[in-house]
C-alpha cells in the first residue's frame, strides 16, 4: 500500500538559494498532517513544491505511488491536490461566487463539493456571494480561499496558514469546518504557525527548521521541550 501522498528527499531552490534540503513526508488517506516551524523554515515552499508551483524531480513527489514532482500546477490540481495559498490570494476582479466557481475550472470531477455545499459549510459566503472579495473581512476571505480549493474536489487539501492574521474566534470558526472536510474523505496538510491549533487537529506533526525536518511524531507523543527545540534550534 502506498501512502496517498509522499515526498522523498524533496529539495527546492529559488535560483541559487536552496530552501529545502530533502524532506520526507507521508500522508495517508483520511489523515491530517500539520507542518510547523519558524518563519522562513520552508513550510510554504514545501506546499508550493507539492502543488507544482516550484518544479523539481518527478519522483520527489508521489501521489498514490505515481511520480508527479515534475508536473505543472494546473495538472496537479486535476490529479486531486489543491492548495489554499498563503495570504489567500483571491482574484480581486472576481466576485465571491466567481472565485468559488473558478475553483473547478480545470477539473470538473464529480464529488461532494459543489457551490451549494460550500455555502452550507460557510453560510456567510452565500450572503456575500455577489460582493467583490476585497470588501470581505479577513475571515470571510479565508473561507472563500478554502471553498475555492474544495470546488475541485481534491483528495489532498494543502492549507498554508489559514489562521494568519485572524482573531481567535474567527480562527475557531474556520477550523470548525475542518471535520466536515475530513468527513468527505479529504486528506489535509496544514501549515500552521499556531502550534496549539495544529496539535489539536493533526494526526501527525512535522516540524521544519531552516529547510530540514527537525522533528516528526504524533502530537500526544511529543513534549513541549522537544517541540521548542525543533522549532527554534538547540
Amino acid at each position: 500500500m502506498h501512502p496517498l501522498l509522499e515526498t522523498r528527499q524533496l529539495k527546492a531552490f529559488y535560483g541559487d538559494f536552496q530552501a529545502l534540503f530533502g524532506i520526507d513526508m507521508t500522508l495517508d488517506a483520511g489523515e491530517t498532517v500539520a507542518i510547523i516551524g519558524a518563519n522562513g523554515a520552508g513550510k510554504s515552499t514545501f506546499l508550493k513544491a507539492i502543488a507544482g508551483l516550484i518544479h523539481g524531480e518527478a519522483d520527489n513527489v508521489l501521489l498514490d505511488g505515481t511520480p508527479i514532482g515534475a508536473r505543472s500546477a494546473s495538472d496537479i490540481v486535476r490529479l486531486g491536490v489543491a492548495l489554499v495559498p498563503e495570504g489567500r490570494r483571491l482574484f480581486p476582479s472576481l466576485t465571491v461566487e466567481e472565485n468559488l466557481l473558478i475553483g473547478d475550472y480545470g477539473c470538473k470531477v464529480p464529488g461532494p463539493w459543489t457551490l451549494d455545499r460550500v455555502y452550507a459549510l460557510f453560510p456567510v459566503l452565500r450572503e456575500r456571494r455577489h460582493s467583490a472579495t476585497p470588501a470581505l473581512s479577513g475571515g470571510q476571505q479565508q473561507m472563500v480561499a478554502i471553498g475555492r480549493a474544495l470546488m475541485s474536489n481534491p483528495r489532498v487539501l494543502l492549507c498554508d496558514e489559514i489562521s494568519l492574521g485572524l482573531a481567535p474566534i474567527i480562527i475557531a470558526g474556520i477550523y470548525a469546518g475542518l471535520p466536515q472536510i475530513k468527513a468527505e474523505g479529504t486528506s489535509v496538510v496544514l501549515v500552521e504557525q499556531d502550534i496549539v491549533q495544529a496539535m489539536k487537529v493533526a494526526d501527525r506533526v512535522y516540524c521544519f527548521q531552516e529547510g530540514r525536518l527537525s522533528l516528526t511524531g504524533r502530537p500526544r507523543d511529543l513534549t513541549r521541550e522537544q517541540i521548542h527545540r525543533a522549532y527554534f534550534g538547540a
Binding site: S74, V77, L83, Y105, A149
Partner: peptide, 8 residues
Amino acid sequence: EVAQLMGI
C-alpha cells in the same frame, strides 16, 4: 500563479 492552481 494562482490561476494555475485552479487548473487553468
